[in-house]
Design a protein around this nucleic acid. Structure first.
Length: 231
DNA sequence: AAATATCGCAACCGCGACGTA
DNA sequence: GTACGTCGCGGTTGCGATATT
């Protein structure tokens, strides 16, 4: 027996989301929370399939998303976790609050993978690659890549200090972080809108729910605050 | 300035896991 | 036990932005 499509293909919109659609989805989830995704499009008045709504929300609209470029510390964390977990992006993302699996996966494929290759490290096994004939040339390439990365990080929206602050909250002051803490936090974030988010937000410098939402709308440039969205 | 190549990100697709009747 | 529905994950694609020629 074949698998049923997640939604009937007829009349289901695909492709980039418009600001209007985003508004509808945000409005719906802020008012009703995350429920059955299949029902969301109908209830929110969207011509999308539930899957598309879930993806849009988790990867782009969630107010706890950090966005912006990855810092050195975040990148190192991704590399460490990838060495342990492999391509389990969702598991890796769970250890990096504010980052989505998609974002991490994209960053891995576009930046980290190349960086590791240049450094002579196999991005799959994390073992050293076989020796290059011309080591000199390789060193120059690595240096250029590092310079590029430095400039990139300089423009990043989040600095290492914030990340360390966040990490110490998540994992305690010692280096051995507890994955239990992360799970608890992830859980509370996912059960959004829930007040449990406030403690975490206060530590990472995010505002409580309402302000966070204001930030979200402001950040997304929907200009809905003055339009009386009614949150 | 125009054409072309490359990059980076958002979104889609297909599949497996899981829950339920 | 199994048929079905839903969700979430990982791989892949499409396309706009940017860089290069």
């Amino acid at each position: 027996m074949g698998r049923q499509p997640c939604c009937d293909k007829l009349g289901v919109k695909k492709g980039p989301w418009t600001a209007e659609e985003d508004k509808k989805l945000i409005n719906f989830i802020l008012n009703n929370g995350q429920c059955c995704w299949r029902a969301v499009p109908k209830l929110a008045g969207l011509s999308r399939c539930g899957k598309s709504c879930r993806l849009r929300w988790t990867n782009y609209l969630r107010p706890d998303l950090k966005r912006g470029l990855f810092t050195d510390s975040e990148e190192q964390l991704v590399i460490d976790l990838h060495a342990r977990l492999g391509n389990r992006w969702s598991k890796i993302a769970a250890k990096l609050p504010g980052r989505t699996d998609n974002e991490i996966k994209n960053h891995w494929n576009t930046h980290i993978k190349k960086k590791l290759m240049k450094m002579g490290i196999d991005p799959v096994t994390h073992e050293p690659l076989h020796e290059k004939k011309d080591g000199k040339e390789e060193k120059v390439e690595v240096k250029l890549e590092e310079d590029k990365e430095k400039k990139r990080i300089e423009n990043s929206s989040m600095n290492d200090e914030n990340l360390m602050h966040m990490e110490s909250f998540l994992w305690g002051s010692n280096d051995n972080y507890s994955s239990n803490n992360i799970d608890v936090i992830s859980e509370s974030m996912w059960s959004f809108p829930n007040n449990e988010l406030e403690d975490f937000n206060s530590v990472i410098g995010m505002s409580p729910l309402e302000e966070t939402c204001e930030w979200l709308f402001d950040y997304q440039g929907f200009g809905v605050l003055g339009d009386g969205l009614g949150i």
